[in-house]
Design a protein around this nucleic acid. Structure first.
Length: 518
DNA sequence: GGACGGTGAAACTTCAGGTTGCCTC
DNA sequence: GAAGTTTCACCGTCC
């Protein structure tokens, strides 16, 4: 360890080190343990940082306009970027993350305050890696982070082709903490890596796909296969492993994803050579690569659908109550009553049998309701800022959730097809489109066009252009007034109404959209 | 005397992230 | 466990 001389200008160590990094013209990554903390740290450094030039302004502008309407998060990021500072976490959009990463690599951005995201995956070395928090909130309260995580973060210090050295700096609040950090992290050994294979959801998925691929046809082969895995090597408790596998096979059979053939007389023999085969449904579930439990849950929901009222919410709640879509939005104490009320309002549309208030699953169930309410607001055309305020869901997180929901709905579609539930398929297809664009049903035909997203489609609709037919009948001048020339031409082209003559674009006293609406 | 506004202390909340799944409506 | 947020009591000012 080496000591660095700093100007102790402010009482925050992180701030001092950050400003020193700027002063010596180097770059730093600052790791915080929450998104909020990453943002705040970046903001505070930005307030003290001096630089501000055109390249930075252009970059800030790009980050600000990553969405059709900037959220508070976008504004905050833009403010930081103007000073060559950034924050980075899963709540940012893909474009924003790319802007930050690219500009850090080329040196425009000097400091990134981030959550542990940047320690994994993204390759962004810096002269300094500053670890602000070595404790993180877990189920058992605040706990020291694993040594492996510390190594990942400090490993970002030093850029192989640019610097001869790098500095990894951990922040201690007290002297006692300093000793603890030195002992635990600087001189400590990383934890062993444990196999997660024997976790039931993983095992369920693997067992089914091994059988589906005809890679394995008997229970004995299945045992042999898993006996050779890292998990078996590590835990050596083969009996427990076999018991879990047997349980998984039983479940898969009960759910009708696999069948045992010729086992009428062999039940006494545990390690019998009875053949395992997937059913048609089981094979498709394996291909879809979803947890068989999720598949079974969706099958049950769809069976229930015949005597329920159907709404987009029905399917939204169905996908919101799966393992794949976790983590769910948490219902806070303050909103408990509100969510419960909404749940009652939608309860006729719920496909699953709702648990009673006194069962332990109830909390999870309410969380799934909150998650589906968020989706429901999205397809009711609420914007990102609203979702951020109302649900604390940031744009980046929204995108991830939407993508998973789409995949699950696709799976539901496929399962429904096998079950011959044609009437459900139509609804699911529609919902997938609505989720993708974040629109009400009435905009679906408009949004199919290239360059027409939720915002423009809504504007067209308000101007009484409600479907393809309306658009075909509309003249180009009208369309240009609403959409601008480029988009209007593109729309006409897509409708097969190629415009050979570029219209005169000099209309005086052009009507604003608002006037047009009256 | 009461309405209003500002202030600060106390009480209360909340807290990282991610790979691979499909198909193209 | 700590930072951030909300609530609430308290006080001064103004009408």
């Amino acid at each position: 360890m080496k000591s660095i001389k700093l100007d102790d200008e402010f009482d925050s160590a992180v701030l001092n080190i950050a400003l020193d990094t700027l002063k010596i013209g180097k770059q730093a990554l600052i790791f915080a343990n929450t998104k909020k903390s990453a943002e705040k740290t970046a903001e505070e450094i930005s307030k003290k940082a001096k630089s501000n030039d055109e390249i930075l302004s252009a970059m800030a502008e790009k980050a600000l306009n990553a969405l059709s309407k900037p959220t508070k998060q976008c504004e905050r990021l833009a403010f930081c970027l103007k000073k060559g500072i950034a924050f980075h976490h899963a709540g940012l959009t893909q474009e924003q993350k790319a802007v930050i990463e690219d500009n850090f690599r080329n040196g425009n951005v000097k400091i990134i305050c981030c959550t542990p995201t940047l320690a994994y995956g993204v390759d962004l070395p810096a002269y300094r890696a500053i670890i602000k928090d070595l404790k993180r909130y877990t189920a058992h309260g605040l706990a020291w982070i694993p040594v492996l995580d510390y190594l990942q973060m400090s490993g970002r210090a030093g850029r192989p082709n640019y610097d001869n050295e790098g500095q990894a700096i951990a922040i201690a609040l007290t002297n006692g903490e300093k000793e603890k950090i030195e002992e635990r992290y600087v001189n400590g050994l990383p934890e062993d890596i444990y196999s997660k294979l024997a976790v039931e959801p993983v095992l369920r998925t693997y067992v089914l796909s091994l059988i589906a691929a005809n890679f394995i046809t008997t229970k004995k082969q299945l045992f042999d296969f898993f006996d050779r895995t890292f998990y078996a090597h590590q835990f050596k408790d083969l009996r427990r492993l076999h018991a879990t596998i047997s349980k998984v096979i039983d479940m898969l059979e009960e759910w009708e994803f696999i069948m045992r053939s010729g086992d009428d007389f062999s039940s006494a023999n545990e390690l019998s050579d009875e053949k395992l085969k997937t059913t048609l449904m089981g094979k498709r579930v394996a291909e879809l690569y979803i947890d068989p439990l999720t598949a079974y849950f969706m099958i049950t929901c769809m069976r229930n659908a015949s005597d329920k009222k159907l709404d987009a919410f029905s399917f939204l709640q169905m996908v919101s109550h799966t393992l794949e879509i976790r983590p769910l939005l948490k219902v806070g104490i303050r909103e408990y009553d509100k969510v419960q009320e909404s749940m009652l309002e939608f309860s006729d549309f719920l496909l699953e049998n709702e648990p009673s208030m006194y069962e332990p699953e109830y909390e999870d169930f309410l969380n799934s309701v909150k998650t589906s309410l968020m989706f429901n607001h999205w397809i009711s055309e609420q914007n990102e800022e609203f979702l951020l305020e109302e649900y604390n869901v940031r744009p980046g997180e929204l995108r991830v959730k939407l993508e998973i929901a789409d995949w699950l709905l696709y799976a539901a579609e496929e399962i429904g097809r096998i079950m011959h539930y044609q009437y459900l398929l139509k609804e699911i297809v529609k919902l997938r489109l609505r989720l993708k664009y974040g629109v009400k049903e009435e905009l679906l035909s408009l949004v199919r066009l290239e360059n027409i997203g939720r915002a423009r489609a809504r504007i067209l609709f308000r101007n009484r252009l409600r479907d393809i037919k309306d658009l075909k009948n509309a003249n180009l001048t009208t369309l240009t007034q609403i959409l601008g020339e480029k988009t209007a031409l593109s729309v006409k082209r897509q409708l097969g109404q190629e415009q050979s003559v570029v219209p005169e674009n000099k209309r005086k006293g052009q009507i604003s959209l608002r006037d047009w609406e009256e």
